[in-house]
Computed example of a mutant assay.
Amino acid sequence: MILHELLDYDTLRVIWWVLLGVLLIAFATTGGFDLGVGTLLPFVAKTDTERRVAINSVGATWEGNQVWLILGGGAIFAAWPPLYAVSFSGFYLAMFATLFALILRPVGFKYRSKRESPRWRNNWDWALFVGGFVPSLIFGVAVGNVLQGVPFRFADDMRIFYEGTFFGLLNPYALLCGLLSVAMLVMHGAAWLILKTEGPVAERARHYGSLAAFAAILLFALGGIFLAAGVDGYRITSEINTVGPSNPLFKTAEHAGTWFANYGTYPWLLIAPACGFAGAALALLSMRARLEVTTLLFSKLSIFGIISTVGVSMFPFILPSSLDPRASLTVWDASSSHMTLFIMLVVSAIFLPLIFLYTAWVYKVLWGKVDEKAITDKSGHAY
């Protein structure tokens, strides 16, 4: 037996669909609180020392948290090449804006404290705000557009034609999803600040985090209602070939039905949206009860639930096409070859646990609060 045939092609495709979700959730739960802290920076910190407290709460870990974003992009490139090609070309300007904002973050971290000038530091503080807010918003806007269908098609020779515009991405439902993403990550950033700081910064984080948690619950509910009432889902209308070669044009599909069909077939999938609502609600209650660790854990649960809801609602679709439903990318027709997926799985089985262990060790070593005294006496903080 050939080694890669130990796992069926269809099983490998589902495994990599799950792993892509794991990587996205891992980035949202680690790099997400970095983005949330950046977005909260002008609101929770009023003095230079308070801002340095907030910045240093993520200063030791933000670089390592970007690993999950890189792994997610790499997984899309290697495991789902058509998805990478369509999304990164069709959303080019949006991706460019996101990358520009993400580039501002390391520059802001590194240069903010190089000079004592209040104007200099204030400008970099706003750069950190942009570096947190813009990616948070655009990630959600992208998901909102994916749920509605993206205007692309394939020619018979598999050339990609994208017929959308940048401003076309900024439609009402996509903006609602963008605001949900911002609220979700602001809640998470606030939970992190509550855990890692004390005094005025933690108190303000508790206040704004409570508002963000409430907003996340409301926006998640509105997003679901809007999706049920105003956004038709997609469905495959031909026989599904789970073991054949990857070519989206081998199937037929239509823009009809609903994204909620999977919950009727598999009711246990309702665990995903339940986690989204329950996590945000419990995070809100934990903030008001002045709990720290549980607030962060419930915030992570909410992020898991919200992102998982998108994945299980769309399955098996990954990127539907509003121009030609037949061209929609699914789990069964947008993956790399059987051998490629197997080799990547073996590599992932070796290195992902190492990354998890190293990350856990880093957080254990760097556990503890950042206070103003440690900032003013320069006892080991970088920024």
Rank of each mutant, 00 (worst) to 15 (best):
M1I: 04
D8S: 15
L19F: 14
L20V: 13
V22A: 08
L24C: 05
I25P: 02
I25M: 07
A26E: 02
G31M: 06
T39C: 14
E50H: 00
N56I: 07
V58D: 02
G64W: 12
L69Y: 13
I70R: 08
A79M: 09
L83A: 14
V86M: 03
F100I: 09
P106S: 06
P106A: 08
P106F: 11
F109Y: 11
G131L: 11
G131E: 06
P135H: 03
L137C: 15
G144C: 03
N145I: 09
A155M: 13
T165R: 06
N171R: 01
G178K: 01
L180I: 05
M184R: 01
I194R: 00
K196G: 00
A205W: 00
H207E: 02
G209M: 01
G209V: 00
G224D: 07
I225R: 04
L227A: 08
A228N: 08
G230F: 13
D232G: 08
I236C: 14
I236Y: 13
P248M: 08
F250I: 11
T258C: 08
P273R: 07
A274W: 10
A278M: 12
A281S: 15
M287Q: 09
L291I: 04
F298G: 13
S308C: 09
T309E: 11
L319H: 05
L319D: 04
S322L: 03
R326T: 14
V346G: 06
L357P: 01
T359N: 08
A360E: 04
W367G: 03
D377L: 09
G380T: 02
Y383C: 02
